[in-house]
């Protein structure tokens, strides 16, 4: 009688442990994360290391370097920027608390001249209408005047941007545009002829460096993506494995039945 229970327990334990083993191997990606990229837009700042909650997250970022989007848990984080050669010792150039929400994407830009460095945080778009293009501009040139960005000899698309503003997005037809950055009196300060905006793509165009050597820096914020991973299988190659499992299960059950018979016989002898 007890033997039977022991067998069943044993088999159950074997099967359960296998199931758990599979569960434990699965890689858990946390959906409560936010995405953050860090952008070095300070013309005279040296290469820097960025520490998030005391941990070196970015090393040796120079002017006009941008990280890829990184996963960070939602919530508050301490972001500190040190000169790369300081190895995290001494005082940071700047340190700030960053609050981020799950499922959102952010650009954190180090802007301004070194002696006046600040962190500019912008929330990044994660959608675009099919076939369209979406763009925003950032005025990250510390000493440049207030500007408009618009079509050469045409309308302004973004008006009255001054340091360190990052505008809202505008959805535009995909295509190639002859754009310029101009002051409010119409004087061109940066020629952006032949700017190509691909469809299904979201951009940030940052005007960086000092006013006398102003340049445009184009970053991609988002490209169209599906809502889930594609379904890339129909199950036809799984039968071997399932068969193996069924044969195993059948054999175990047969074993239990045989054990049961044996126990019954034993009991009846004893009776």
């Amino acid at each position: 009688m007890n033997l039977k229970k022991v067998f069943i327990l044993l088999v159950t334990a074997v099967m359960l442990s296998s199931v758990f083993a599979i569960g434990a191997l699965a890689d858990n990606h946390d959906s409560s994360d936010a995405m953050v990229r860090i952008v070095h837009a300070s013309p005279d700042a040296p290469a820097v290391n960025v520490y998030v909650n005391g941990e070196a997250t970015v090393e040796g970022a120079a002017f006009k370097d941008a990280t890829d989007y990184m996963n960070l848990p939602a919530g508050e984080h301490d972001v500190a920027i040190y000169p790369a050669e300081a190895n995290g010792e001494g005082d940071p150039v700047i340190s700030q608390t960053l609050t981020i929400e799950a499922g959102e994407a952010y650009t954190v830009a180090a802007v301004g001249m070194l002696d006046n460095l600040s962190l500019k945080v912008a929330s990044d778009s994660m959608s675009v209408s099919e076939g369209m293009s979406k763009v925003r501009v950032g005025h990250l040139s510390p000493d440049a005047p207030m500007v408009d960005v618009g079509v050469i000899d045409g309308d302004a698309l973004f008006s009255g941007a001054s340091f360190p503003a990052i505008t809202d997005y505008q959805e535009l037809e995909a295509g190639t545009y002859d754009l310029e950055v101009r002051t409010e009196d119409g004087t061109q300060v940066l020629d952006l002829s032949g700017t190509t905006l691909e469809e299904n793509t979201v951009y940030s165009v940052f005007a960086v460096n000092t006013a006398d050597s102003l340049e445009a820096w184009v970053l991609t914020d988002y490209t169209m993506m599906p809502s889930e991973m594609p379904q890339t299988g129909m199950g036809g190659a799984q039968s071997d494995m399932n068969n193996m499992f069924m044969i195993g299960l059948g054999t175990v059950l047969a074993g239990i039945v045989v054990a049961g018979i044996a126990i019954n016989r034993k009991n009846s002898y004893q009776a």
Binding site: M244, F245, G248, I256, A262
Partner: peptide
């Protein structure tokens, strides 16, 4: 019968393990 039972169960478990392993 007992020996047979043990053989069957351990053999079957191996199969199950193998399929899980895969």
């Amino acid at each position: 019968l007992f020996i047979l039972a043990i053989l069957l169960i351990s053999g079957g478990s191996t199969f199950i393990f193998a399929s899980m392993d895969e």
